[in-house]
Every structure is written in structure tokens, then in C-alpha cells.
Simulated scan of single mutants.
Amino acid sequence: MTKPYPWYYRPLNWLLRGLAHLPLPLLYGMAEVIYFLLAHVLRYRQKVVLQNLRNSFPEKPETEIRQIQKTFYRHFAQMMVETLKLAVLPAAELKRRVWFSNPEVLERHFAQGRTVLGLSSHAGNWEWVLTSGAVWLSAHADGVYKPLSNPFFESFMHQLRTRTGAGLIPMRDTLRDMLQRRGETRVVSLLSDQAAGPEDRPYWTQFLNQDSGFYTSADRLAARFHCPVVYVSIRRLRRGYYQIILTELYDGDSPLPANEFPITEAFVRHLERDIRTFPADYLWTHRRWKHQRPASEVIRTQNPEPRA
């Protein structure tokens, strides 16, 4: 349950909900204004975006880097209005716009009454993935998330994300939730591309030509609760339409090696392939590489191709 927010946020709430009722074509017109402000006036995190792109794609010329940057800002602005539209978007319309191409990858585990971990990322429109999953899938869909510090935006985003029936699990409560609901038929979605700090005991590997630390929750939870794990690929087909492609990373039964993180490594390789294919659709404003790998850590140098 979200905390109540101060009364002076009510006009903002009315404004946002009023804007959400506008047709998507009008909202996309607003997105062009937002794009111009972000990219050319405010230059929102421009240095971070350019540094991330240059470090991730050292082989690309500067002209291509600048074009990816421009396309990213436009996509980012469109995603903002699409997220706002969740406040009123009918479930049937959401299902039409987000296509799960192979839901049977999850459904066969649901038929066995299992909990499945879905590893997603900040690609495409990640806010539409969980909400559409609650519409597409036969089992319940929960998402692990980090609550916002502002009480109004936490309440507003919570309502948007749960409106189609999905549930939310605060990150700090993940293990407790898994223990209390052990054996429940559902999918638990994890945004697994976030930067893990030193206190999180990250798994270090090469990701987009850079030392990168990743949370190891997927491997730990899968080993403890025997959960199958699925990679969730989010691909933008065109403005306002997305395709979800599911790839099984772990069957939930095979032994997992101790003190190794093959599920996380497989996730990284799949995500890297997707980003290289659709570079402008990733969240480049995020300071993904803000942590440095300790000198004592041994880093994996081989980057095998992900299995289909």
C-alpha cells in the first residue's frame, strides 16, 4: 500500500490524468515537444548519454553516435507519454499494442504450477511489459521494483503499473515475498540490468565493452526456489507497438554451479545482442557504469554468443 501524498499534489494529479485521456496521436505530438526540450534546450544528461554511447560502441563513427543519441531522445519522449497513457488505456488496447510472440515459453511452466522469473531490462517500453503481461498470461504477474522517494509519484506510478492486475514487490522485500508465496503459479519480473554497487556483491563481466557489475538475484532465487528463468526481449516494432520474445535461460531443475552465475551471464549476453541490434531503444541516460570493478575481482573475459 502506498503512502498518502500531500494535498498540494492534487492539481498535478488532475492534470496528468486529464492529459492521459488525450488520444495517443495528440500525446505523440506532445512527445515531439518533450523531445525538443530534452535534446536541444535542457540537453538532459547529454554528457552521460554521449559517454555511454561512445564507450559502448567505440567502433562507430561520431556521426552515427549522434544519430543514435537523437533517435534515443525521441524514443524516450514517446515512452514518457505512453507510460502516462497507462492511466486510462483499456486492457484490450494494451494487448493489441504489445504482442507476446511466444507466451507458451511461460505457459508450459504455469501448467506445472511453478513460479517463473522473468528477466527484463530498460529497453523498449519496459513500463508496458509488466502491465501487458498481466493481460496476456494465464498466471499472475508481479514486478520487483524500487519505490520512488516522492510520495505522489510513487502513488501515481503504483496505480499505473497495477491497473491491469499486475502486482508490485518492493526490491527489499523480494526474498520475503518468495518465501511467503513459495510454489505459487506466477511470473516475477526483475529489471536485471541495473547497476549493482559494491555492497550488493555484484557479478562482474564485460558488457558493451565495459566492466559491468550485475545483481545476482536471478541465480540465487532460481537455485533456492527451483524457478525457471526466462529472458524477456522487448522490441519496438514501430511507434506505440512492441513485440515481446521470451527465451528460456534455465529450466528450474538442472543443477546450478556454486559461486557461479550462469543465468546472469546468459542474461547479459542476450541483452547485449538486443542493444547492438536496436541501440536507440535502450535507456542511455542511466549511469549504468558508475561503479568500478575492484582490482581483486576476477572478470570473465569470454563472451559466448547467447543460445537461441
Rank of each mutant, 00 (worst) to 15 (best):
A139V: 03
A223P: 00
H286R: 05
R224Y: 04
P170H: 12
Q69I: 01
R235Q: 06
E199S: 11
T71G: 00
D142M: 10
T164C: 04
W14F: 14
L283V: 07
M79Q: 13
F110Y: 09
A308D: 00
A280R: 15
E62G: 07
P151V: 02
P90R: 01
A134G: 14
R293L: 05
P306F: 02
L15Q: 09
L160N: 11
Y250T: 07
I244S: 11
K290N: 10
P170E: 07
R176W: 00
N209E: 11
F267E: 14
V88C: 15
R235E: 08
A222V: 07
Y250I: 00
L26T: 03
P11I: 13
D173S: 10
E199F: 05
A139N: 10
R172D: 02
L117F: 06
R181W: 05
Q51S: 11
L50G: 01
L42M: 12
I234Y: 02
A141E: 11
P306V: 01
L130G: 12
A196W: 12
T83W: 09
K85P: 01
T264K: 08
R43H: 12
S132I: 01
Q210R: 14
I169Q: 11
Q243W: 03
D200I: 06
Q210G: 02
E32V: 09
P25R: 02
Q51E: 12
E265S: 07
V187M: 14
A266F: 09
V41F: 01
A134E: 12
I65C: 10
Y9S: 01
S132G: 05
F156L: 03
S149V: 00
D251M: 04
D193R: 04
D193M: 01
L19V: 13
Q210E: 03
L168V: 12
A195S: 15
L38E: 04
K85D: 07
G252S: 00
K47D: 13
T205R: 14
N259L: 08
P202M: 10
A266W: 13
V98R: 03
I234V: 15
T247V: 03
L137E: 11
D211R: 07
E64D: 12
A111I: 04
K146A: 04
E104F: 00
H158N: 08
A111L: 13
S233A: 15
Q206E: 10
T162C: 11
L221V: 04
Q46V: 03
A87N: 15
K85N: 09
P6R: 10
N52D: 12
G143W: 02
A92F: 08
G213A: 04
M30W: 14
E82C: 05
